[in-house]
């Protein structure tokens, strides 16, 4: 372990010769994932994900607002990722770091491109009142691969959301909410992300830890849905790679996705 800190690349190579990683995983093996929903009672929906040591919590707060002029019949979903200074010494307190912003945008793109939430369901009264779901994600412990953990946390938290019943008074036009009656709303699909990274231009490893992220180049994230379709593919940097390698990642992502979907189903029941 000492050697891993002093000569990370060299010592990592010796591990890879045996096709194993320092934490005992195989190259394409992901870390153990724990999903826990509804633990925050002040949030309208919440989920805590532990991916190995990496820990991400997502809390959803539902509020009422006036819809935008472009989409009068649609609600709004705003994800926000926070890599707080608490989770790792890599981050400073203050506004979100670049990495957090990139994850925020990733989650936003993902929500827009897949049909997990139909924003029309969030409409209370067209042109007058819609729900806005603030999905705040906080990384509590950062040991690499915050992206997969945050996708899992976000989707599980959205599935966990229960919003109170709202009625709009016809005469006064004022809304009235009944906090006693809360209903879950329909989420469709269960996207699941799998991230890979490339070590030394030739070894693809799944679910990197923080140390592995530091010594590898380029990352590949594949999001699959329950029909094993690809919803989102993001490959950033790294050396040029033949397509066959990429297909390996896709194949592994599909496998991993179906494993993770069992978690979603387990917490939903």
């Amino acid at each position: 372990m000492e050697l891993l800190n002093l000569q990370p690349v060299e010592s990592y190579k010796t591990f890879l010769k045996e096709n194993i990683r320092p934490d005992g995983r195989e190259l394409m093996e992901t870390r153990q994932t724990v999903l826990n929903v509804g633990s925050i009672s002040t949030a309208d929906g919440s989920a805590l994900v532990k991916l190995g040591e990496t820990m991400v919590i997502c809390g959803v707060k539902a509020e009422l607002t006036i819809p935008s002029a472009e989409d009068p019949g649609k609600g709004i979903v705003v994800p926000n990722m926070e890599m707080s200074a608490l989770c790792s010494s890599h981050f400073k307190p203050g506004p979100p770091s670049e990495q957090a912003q990139v994850i925020t945008k990733f989650l936003d793109n993902l929500l827009k491109s897949c049909t997990v939430i139909d924003t029309a369901d969030l409409c209370v009264m067209k042109d007058k009142l819609v729900w806005v779901l603030y999905c705040d994600l906080i990384c509590l412990n950062y040991d690499g691969n915050a992206l997969d953990a945050s996708v899992l946390a976000l989707i599980a938290a959205l599935q966990n959301v229960k919003i109170p019943e709202v009625t709009v008074d016809d005469e006064s036009g004022l809304p009235h909410t009944n906090m006693e009656v809360k209903k879950a709303f329909a989420t469709r699909g269960m996207p699941c992300a799998t991230t890979f990274t490339v070590f030394d231009g030739s070894h693809i490893i799944a679910d990197p830890t923080l140390k592995e992220e530091d010594i590898t180049e380029g990352n590949i994230t594949v999001v699959t849905d329950e029909h094993d379709n690809l919803i989102y593919v993001q490959r950033q940097g790294g050396l040029a790679m033949p397509e066959a390698e990429m297909q390996k990642c896709v194949k592994r992502a599909v496998e991993h996705g179906s494993e993770m979907r069992k978690l979603y189903l387990a917490v939903a029941s």
């Binding site: 707060k61 539902a62 509020e63 009422l64 607002t65 006036i66 935008s68 709004i76 705003v78 994800p79 926000n80 925020t104 945008k105 936003d108 806005v132 603030y134 919003i163 109170p164 709202v166 909410t177 906090m179």
Partner: peptide, 10 residues
């Protein structure tokens, strides 16, 4: 990400 200017708790 941009958020609505005002929103109210239910």
């Amino acid at each position: 990400l941009p958020v609505p200017e005002v929103s109210h708790s239910p």
